[in-house]
């Protein structure tokens, strides 16, 4: 931790204002080059506190940067984690207000819902699998509050990992009905296939994201409460979207999700 409380509060306020006014800012490490992960999660927590105080509720948790290739490229050992609020929930088949965002992008993901508390340290895959209630398809809407999605890992954590919105629905399944690593999906933008992938793109197994999330939260004195909706990380590259674009994601065994930007 390198920042004092007042600076954490000021940076959180700056990111909140950027989101509210849709005016991107330069990444905060330009000004605070020694910012560490503890600082970044402290800023994210302040943003969460402000949102809850404003009446938003926590809708779920999310992991980002979960592809091994991306982690290697950024030289990090674990993904980044953030949260979603009810304000980001969009209906399956509905229209998303494009103007609520700066430069939205979407990623297709597998979401898991827990039925038991999960706490680290030492959380492992079997424990997570035992705690899964059901599996859902999900599409995440990402929007960086930094100019042109230009950021580093620490800055992106402070910005709640670019969390902006999500769509879920489709056909929920029990864990034993699906094979998460080989579960395939196809992203279509305006009727054309733009991305394909399978669950193993996320850390070899999407539930591995939750293992790392539980252990990460433990270091911050938190845990994953029973009933959490967790988006495990993008299976495909992010797809840029704009007004008028329609997205359909077809998931193996989990049905379809569709959304459009209006």
């Amino acid at each position: 931790m390198t920042l004092d409380e007042a600076t954490v509060e000021a940076l959180a306020a700056r990111l909140l204002a950027a989101e509210r006014e849709r005016k991107p800012i330069t990444k905060i490490t330009d000004e605070h080059p020694h910012l560490d992960y503890d600082d970044a999660y402290a800023i994210q927590n302040r943003i969460r506190a402000h949102k809850l105080a404003a009446g938003e509720t926590i809708a779920g948790l999310k992991a980002g940067l979960t592809s091994k290739a991306k982690m290697k490229q950024m030289n990090v050992a674990e993904p980044v984690f953030g949260f979603m609020t009810d304000r980001g929930a969009w209906p399956d088949g509905g229209a998303i207000e494009r103007d609520r965002y700066i430069a939205p992008r979407i990623e297709a993901e597998i979401a898991l819902v827990t039925k038991r508390d999960l706490a680290g340290p030492g959380c492992h895959l079997a424990e997570v699998l035992a705690a899964i209630d059901f599996v859902l398809p999900a599409v995440e809407v990402l929007d960086s509050r930094y100019e042109n999605f230009r950021f580093d890992m620490v800055s992106v954590v402070a910005d709640n990992t670019s969390a902006a919105g999500f769509v879920t629905g489709g056909r929920p399944r029990r864990l034993r009905e699906v094979d998460l690593p080989t579960l395939g999906l196809v992203v279509e933008k305006n009727g054309q296939v733009v991305e394909v992938g399978a669950g193993a793109a996320v850390l070899g197994h999407p539930a591995e994201s939750i293992v790392m999330l539980a252990n990460n939260l433990a270091r911050r004195g938190e845990h994953i409460p029973a009933g959490s909706f967790i988006m495990t990380g993008g299976i495909t590259a992010a797809v840029a979207v704009d007004r008028g674009d329609a997205i359909t994601v077809r998931f193996q065994d989990l049905g379809n999700l569709s959304l459009r930007f209006a």
Binding site: P181, T182, V196, G197, A198, Q252
Partner: peptide, 15 residues
């Protein structure tokens, strides 16, 4: 979905 590994490491996924 398809998951392809080379020398024990996942190198690509697709559908």
């Amino acid at each position: 979905g398809i998951v392809v590994s080379l020398n024990g490491e996942i190198i690509s996924t697709g559908a």
